[in-house]
Amino acid sequence: MSSAQHVTSGSEGNPQYLVIDDRKKRRMISNRESARRSRMKKQNHVGDLINQVSKLQKEKNEIMQSVNATTQHYLEVSSENDILRAQMMELTDRLQSLNSVLHIVEEVSGLAMDIPEIPDPLLKPWQLPCPSQLIMASVNIFQS
């Protein structure tokens, strides 16, 4: 064999190998482009997820602030209710004392007095001591 035949019998000289090399190059280019698109898609997806995390953290913080404010308002109202209950019990005791004085005056004087019974708010919390008095509330009472 001559040296000229040796050179042309390699992959550079044979048209069949040139077609295979060309296909290989196109496939490599296509694979690189596909990998680039995949990386870009992944990067965009990660960016979207980061934005979503940020948005959800902000929303969580707002909800936590609202919960804290509502809890604080609840504690204030609960404390006020405790004070009002204590005052009601004290006033009920005073009223019972005054009624017993009226009973004594009624017995001593012989005059009939209309002494209403005092409802026990602990036994019947749904029964108001003064049923003719309306309790008004605003829709915004629980909003801060």
Rank of each mutant, 00 (worst) to 15 (best):
E33C: 02
M40N: 10
N44T: 06
E106H: 01
L111Y: 15
L95F: 06
H103L: 10
L134K: 15
L128W: 07
M113P: 04
V53F: 06
H73G: 02
I135E: 09
R39G: 02
V101L: 06
D120E: 07
T92K: 06
L95R: 11
I83G: 02
N81Y: 13
Q72F: 10
R37M: 06
S34T: 10
R94P: 03
S100I: 07
S100G: 01
E107W: 03
H45Q: 13
S132D: 15
P129W: 03
V77F: 01
D82L: 12
V67E: 00
E80M: 03
V139M: 12
L49P: 00
N81E: 07
M89D: 14
M136A: 13
D48H: 12
R32P: 00
S97D: 05
I63K: 06
E117A: 15
K124Q: 15
V105K: 08
M136C: 13
V101Q: 09
P131L: 00
N68Y: 00
M64E: 12
F142L: 09
S54H: 05
S132F: 10
A86T: 13
V105N: 08
I118G: 00
K60D: 11
V53G: 00
S97Q: 02
I29L: 14
N99C: 06
M64D: 14
V67H: 01
E80T: 12
E90Y: 11
A137E: 14
S79M: 06
Q57E: 12
K55V: 05
C130M: 13
L84Y: 00
R39I: 12
I141L: 12
K41D: 05
I135T: 10
S66V: 02
P129H: 04
S97L: 04
H73S: 09
L102Y: 03
R23C: 10
T71F: 12
D114V: 12
N44R: 10
I141E: 14
S109G: 03
E76M: 04
Q133W: 12
E107F: 09
G47L: 05
I50T: 09
N140S: 11
S30T: 07
R26Y: 04
S34R: 10
T70R: 09
D93F: 08
M64Q: 13
L84Q: 02
D114N: 15
G110I: 03
L122M: 14
E117G: 14
A112M: 14
Q65F: 01
L111N: 15
E62Y: 03
D93G: 15
P116R: 04
L91M: 08
